[in-house]
Design a protein around this nucleic acid. Structure first.
Length: 345
DNA sequence: AATACGCACAACCGCCTGTCC
DNA sequence: AGGACAGGCGGTTGTGCGTAT
């Protein structure tokens, strides 16, 4: 009873992750696959607790995630699902496979909640009195009861554990390919850096760069990592190297994560004869989509791509369409808050 | 130019759940 | 059946950055 918190140990490092730590972690997971987080700090020498490693991987380093710049469509989905599910961010995130629950939660707390409040306030002035139901945000969105039932207990059950399935225990993901690369881990930073460099799409035979999701910033990211690699190879002190390349630690971390993500993306999306051997491994490491995720990961817009046949269930299609309409309202409001009377919030 | 303030986001913390023995 | 443990989730906090004064 009363198991001590895993992070209480002496010598456990806290605070922002450095690029070196990221590389070590990613490299280890490339070799061993995600999971068994307890052993990660032990085997890598990272002075982080297992939880911290898992969180870092799940929220920032995992391939296939997108950060920042939420589209109006995504906003709408979040608003709508939040109204349905409450603050069950993991469940909501399962419908936005490229987003993490943490990211969605932050975005909700910092942006959407305010927008909705504003929307509500204006609605309260112009709209007729609300019906008898309670006055939470959710009450203002009219949902067919049967639909709610379908979402909550139907063919696509959203729950805490859906997210976990996506990340590692999905039966569709073969363990053999998940852990496709046997062998020891690299705890030497130089070795790790070189390993990453070899596997990077920026290496000499890097593959089709034009398909990158991060095309606009690829050059910068590439330079960033190249500089980092050079520092790694020339500097005896990894920390000094990290300090040198950091115009902003957050930005470096962010770019680094983008780079790693895009690196995985390239590997998994490689086409034709240029596909690296690791491609199968990384394809399997991509989280398994609830429905639309496959399309989202196919190199073009996914949800936003009207050319794709909809892989969505009727409820999901409805949710997205509804959400898009609401976001349209929301956007109109934020640009010209007094020109229209919101109906939904 | 310096300081105060607010915002955004990464990371931590505590609790809960599922699994194994 | 029940305890121990690992992993996951949601809430909260800390910190860095940008903007206003």
């Amino acid at each position: 009873m009363g198991r001590p918190p895993c992070c209480d140990k002496e010598g456990i490092k806290k605070g922002p992750w450095t690029p070196e730590e990221d590389i070590i972690l990613v490299s280890y997971i490339q070799e061993h696959g995600p999971g068994n987080w307890r052993s990660v700090p032990i085997n890598t020498g990272l002075m982080r607790c297992s939880k911290s490693c898992r969180l870092r991987w799940t929220n920032y380093l995992r391939p296939g995630i997108r950060r920042g710049n939420f589209t109006p469509h995504e906003e709408g989905i979040i608003v709508h699902l939040q109204s349905l599910l409450g603050n069950r961010w993991a469940a909501i995130a399962s419908y936005l496979p490229q987003r993490t629950d943490n990211d969605i939660k932050n975005y909700w707390n910092t942006h959407l909640k305010k927008k909705l409040k504003k929307h509500q306030a204006i609605g309260a002035i112009f709209a007729p009195p609300p019906p008898a139901s309670d006055s939470s945000l959710s009450s203002s969105i009219v949902m067919p009861t049967t639909t709610v039932v379908v979402v909550g207990g139907g063919s696509h059950v959203i729950d805490h554990h859906h997210h976990r399935d996506m990340l590692g225990t999905n039966p569709l993901v073969s363990k053999d390919s998940y852990y496709a690369r046997p062998g020891g881990c690299c705890s030497n930073p130089d070795e790790v850096a070189q390993l990453i460099a070899r596997r990077s799409p920026f290496a000499a035979d890097g593959g089709d760069r034009s398909s990158s999701s991060y095309a606009s910033s690829m050059d910068n990211i590439s330079k960033l990592l190249t500089g980092f690699m050079k520092q790694q190879q020339s500097s005896p002190s990894p920390d000094a190297a990290a300090a040198d390349i950091k115009p902003s630690a957050a930005q470096v971390n962010n770019n680094h994560a983008l780079l790693l993500s895009s690196s995985f993306h390239h590997m998994s999306a490689g086409t034709g004869s240029g596909t690296p051997p690791a491609a199968a491994c990384f394809n399997d490491m991509m989280p398994s989509p609830p429905h639309a995720q496959q399309a989202a990961l196919m190199g073009h817009g996914g949800y936003d791509d009207p050319r794709q046949p909809s892989p969505l269930s009727p409820i999901e299609t409805w949710l997205f369409e509804e959400a898009a309409e609401q976001v349209g309202d929301l956007m109109d409001l934020s640009e010209d808050c007094c020109s229209s009377v919101p109906m939904m919030f």
